[in-house]
C-alpha cells in the first residue's frame, strides 16, 4: 500500500532494459560518499531486497508494527521512492539539525514509543526499516546511530544497505512520493 492505494511491486519485464539516470554513476566523491561496511554493528540487522519486500507488505497492513523509512532529502525523493516507504528526511531525525520536539513527536506519534515517563518505553515501538541511496549513502546509517543513542532497541532497527541503488539495479519500481 502506498498512500492508501494498492501498488503492485514487480520487476521490469524487459530483459534488455538498462539502468538509467543517476544510478549508473560508479565514482561519487568519497568522502563523503564512501563505501559502508556490510554491518552497522550494535545488533542492527542488514537486510536485502527479499527481506525488504516482506517488510513493505507488513507495513501495508492495518495498524502495522513496521515502518519503512526513506531517509533521503527531497531532491532525491521527489524523483521516486520505494512503494510502501515513508519519507522522513535524515535531517529531521538528526539531533543537531533538528530540534528535540520534532524528534520527540516522531518517536511518540510515528514510531509508537511511549515517552510519557522519564524513561522511555520502547516495548510497543515499531520495527523501523531504514534506507537511503545505497552502499555509498550515509543518511540512514547516521539516523540509525542517533536512534541507538536515544535508546531505540537495535533488534527493532533494520538497514537496507543496498538502498534505492540496488532496488533500481534489479528493475524494481519507484513511485512518486
Amino acid at each position: 500500500m502506498h498512500r492508501g492505494e494498492a501498488v503492485v511491486i514487480k520487476r521490469l519485464q524487459d530483459p534488455t532494459h538498462k539502468l538509467g539516470d543517476e544510478y549508473t554513476l560508479s565514482s561519487r566523491p568519497c568522502p563523503p560518499r564512501c563505501i559502508h561496511p556490510f554491518s552497522l554493528g550494535a545488533g542492527v540487522e542488514t537486510i536485502g531486497e527479499l527481506e525488504l519486500l516482506d517488510y513493505l507488505v507488513a507495513a501495508s497492513e492495518p495498524n502495522p508494527a513496521v515502518l519503512v523509512i526513506d531517509s533521503r532529502t527531497e531532491d532525491w525523493t521527489s524523483k521516486g521512492i520505494i512503494p510502501g516507504s515513508r519519507i522522513i528526511t535524515w535531517q529531521t531525525l538528526k539531533t543537531d539539525t533538528s530540534d528535540p520536539l520534532t524528534v520527540m513527536s516522531l518517536l511518540e506519534d510515528d514510531f509508537n514509543v511511549d515517552t510519557s515517563e522519564a524513561l522511555w518505553d520502547f516495548s510497543e515501538a515499531k520495527t523501523l526499516v531504514l534506507l537511503c541511496n545505497g552502499i555509498w549513502c550515509n543518511q540512514s546509517p547516521q539516523n540509525i546511530k542517533t536512534l541507538l543513542k536515544l535508546g531505540y532497541p537495535a533488534g527493532k532497527i533494520k538497514w537496507y544497505r543496498g538502498g534505492v541503488q540496488s532496488w533500481v539495479q534489479l528493475g524494481l519500481p519507484l513511485v512518486q512520493p
Binding site: 519485464q13 532494459h17 538498462k18 539502468l19 549508473t24 565514482s27 536485502g48
Partner: peptide, 25 residues
Amino acid sequence: DNKNTIASDYALTSRACPPFCIRPI
C-alpha cells in the same frame, strides 16, 4: 573519474528470473 558509469554488462536490470533471481541476504 566522478563521471564514470557502470560497465554496460552490469547496467542490465532485468535478467530472466528464473534463473537469475534475487537471493536472500
